[in-house]
């Protein structure tokens, strides 16, 4: 909910979220992490080349990951000497919270509850 003192920070977080998912390469990265969560940069780049024909450099993909991380959609965890990237869908809930998909049903419900 966009209320109170958290309004500005949530609003800017939502800006980051929409910016993050506005790019097809970043959406492909999310697709691949949903397919298998917890990937190294190497595996992710391999999947993007072989499955999506996205031949960006590792450095470019790394920058895309930074944008996804800023939006909270990807988290990076070190496990020993390796670094793995994980998908986190939680920020996406705010979209449906704001624009609920079952609006007509809810309207009906609201009507029924009226005294």
């Amino acid at each position: 909910m966009l209320t109170g003192t958290g309004k500005r920070s949530l609003a800017s977080l939502m800006d980051e979220l929409y910016r993050a998912i506005a790019d097809p390469t970043r959406r492909a990265i999310l697709d691949e992490l949903v397919d298998r969560n917890g990937q190294t940069l190497f595996e992710l780049c391999g999947r993007l080349i072989m499955k999506h024909r996205i031949e960006s450099s590792r450095q470019a993909i790394s920058q895309h990951l930074d944008v996804l991380e800023a939006a909270g959609l990807v988290t990076t965890e070190r496990d020993g000497r390796y670094k793995f990237h994980w998908f986190n869908g939680e920020p996406l809930r705010e979209i449906t919270r704001r624009w609920p998909p079952k609006k007509t049903k809810q309207n009906k419900k609201r009507k029924g509850n009226d005294p």
């Binding site: 990937q39 190294t40 940069l41 190497f42 595996e43 590792r58 000497r81 390796y82 670094k83």
Partner: peptide, 10 residues
């Protein structure tokens, strides 16, 4: 080597 391993590069 450490930098390569970190990014998962064989």
């Amino acid at each position: 080597k450490a930098a390569m391993v970190e990014d998962g590069i064989p």
